[in-house]
Design a binder for these strands. Sequence first.
RNA 1: GGCGGCGUGGCCGAGUGGUUUAGGCAGGGGCCUGCAAAGCCCCGUACCCGGGUUCGAUUCCCGGCGCCGCCUCCA
Length: 469
Amino acid sequence: MNDPAEQAGIRLFDSASGAVRPLRRREPGRVSMYVCGPTVYDVPHLGHGRFSLVFDVLRRYLRFSGLEVHYVSNITDVDDKILARAAAEGRSPQAVAEEFEAIWWSVMDALGVERPDDVPHATAWVPAMVEMVQELVARGVAYETDDGVYLDVGQVPGYGLLALQPLDTLRAGARVVSTDAKRSPHDFALWKKAADGHSWPSPWGPGRPGWHTECVVMSLGLLGEGFDLHGGGQDLRFPHHENERAQAVAAGRAFAGHWVHNGFVEAGGEKMSKSLGNFTSLTELLEQADPRAFRLLVLRSHYRRGIEVSPATVADAGDALARLDALARRFPDAAGQGRQITSVSELRAESEAEAATFVERMDDDLDTPGALAAVFDIVRRAHGAADAGEVADADRLARCAVSLCQAMGLELHGDALDTPDAAAAELVTRRDDARAKRDWPLADALRAQLEESGWVVEDSPAGTRLRRA
RNA sequence: GGCGGCGUGGCCGAGUGGUUUAGGCAGGGGCCUGCAAAGCCCCGUACCCGGGUUCGAUUCCCGGCGCCGCCUCCA
C-alpha cells in the first residue's frame, strides 16, 4: 500500500489486450505516459482538441489520485506535409513548423491543457533515430532499398496486435502506392532517403526518419523501457502505434505496458463545412465559444466513443457550464483561490461519500460522464443545503464540487472575471438606490438598460450583481 | 473483402436481464422573489427492425437495416 494509487486503482481499456484492466506501474507511485502529439503543418483541428483534453484529464486525475506523473508528448517537426507546405509557400520547413507549433501552444493554453513535462522535437532526436535503425539492420530485421530502410514486419512476433487482426488478413493493396523493393506490403520505412535540404546524414546517405521511428525513439529515450502508458487518437492504433511497437519488439526493448486510444470527433454525419455552420478548426471554435464549454463537452461523453462537436452541442455544454459557474458565484468562498482540494486523500477526509463516488466513476475506465453526473448531484445538494440554512454542509459540498471540477481541469468562474465597466457600475448604484426606495419602475428600467448592454442582472443580499450574458 | 464501434425519451449523452430514477440542456407546473435572475421541488413512462434464449430483454444470441472508423504516415 505504499503506492497511493493502489487505493485508487484506476482501470483503463487497453487496446493491446482488448479489455479493461488495471493500470500497472513500473515504479510504485509513479506513472510514465507518452502521448503522440501533433505534426505541425497546419492549425489544430477539433480532433487534436479532443485527444489533448482527454489525456490532460487523465493526467490530472492520476495526479489527483496521488500519483506522480511523467507526461511526455512530442512535436513532429519533420514530415512530408511540412515540406509540401514549405515548398508551396516558398519558405523553409523550419519556418512552417515554428509557426504552427506556436499556434498549437496558444490553443493548448486557451484550452487549459497543461504543458507536458517533456516535449521532444523530432529534429532534435535524429542521431538517436539513426542509431536505432542501425541496430535493427544489424539484428537482421531491417533492410535497405533504393529509397530507404524498411522493417521486415514478418519477423516481428505478434505483429497485428494493435490492429486487432493477424498480419495475413490485413488488406494489402487498396491504398498502397505500388510495388517497390519492399519484401512485404506491410513493411514500413524506418528511414527515408532524401537529399532535398531537409535531411540528415546517415550510413545510408542523407535522409530523414520515418514517422514511427520518431515516436519509438523519443518515448524510450525519455521514459525508458517498459514505460506505463502510450496514448493517442484511435486512428493511430494502426499502423502508427503498431509500427512503433514492432520496432521496439524487433530491437528487443520492452515497450508500453498499456495502450489507450480515444474516439473520434464527428460532425453529425455531415462533412464539416462552413456552409453548415460547423467548426472547421479548433482555432475557429475557440473564437466563438468558451474553451471550458468544449472541455465539458468532451467530459460529458466517454473518451472511447465518438463525439459530435457542432455549434449546437458546444452551446448546450455551455449552458450546462453556466449551472456550474452559478455554483461558484453563490459560494465564492468555497470556490475561491486556494480553497480547492487537490488530492483525493484530502477530499476523503472532508467528504468521504462524495469523493468515493467520484473516484469509483473515474477509476472505471475514466468514466467522466458518470463522474460529472456525481458532480451535478453534489451541486444540487449544495444549493439545497444552502436554501435550508445548513451553512457548513453547503460550504463543504460546494467546495467538494468545485474541487472535483478542478480535478478534471474545469475551472469555474464566479464573479471575478465579470468586472462591470464604469457605465455599468453607475447603473448598478442607481438601481440599488431605486430599489432601496422601492421605486420598482425605475429599478426595472435600469435593469433593462443593463441587459441591453449584455449583462445579466441578479439581485442578492449584497445588492445588484452583474455577469456577462 | 477483413477487423472494430455505434443506433436510447425534443436535443446531447450514460447505463442495465426485471423491483425508483443516469446526468445535462430545452419544455411544462409549483415554491422563492416587489418583478426577475439564480436556486429548490414535481413532471415526460426512451431504448433501429425481425427472430431466438428467458418467467421476463433496451440490456444476451442470430439475422437485417442505417451510420462511422481502421486496413501504410490521419489525433
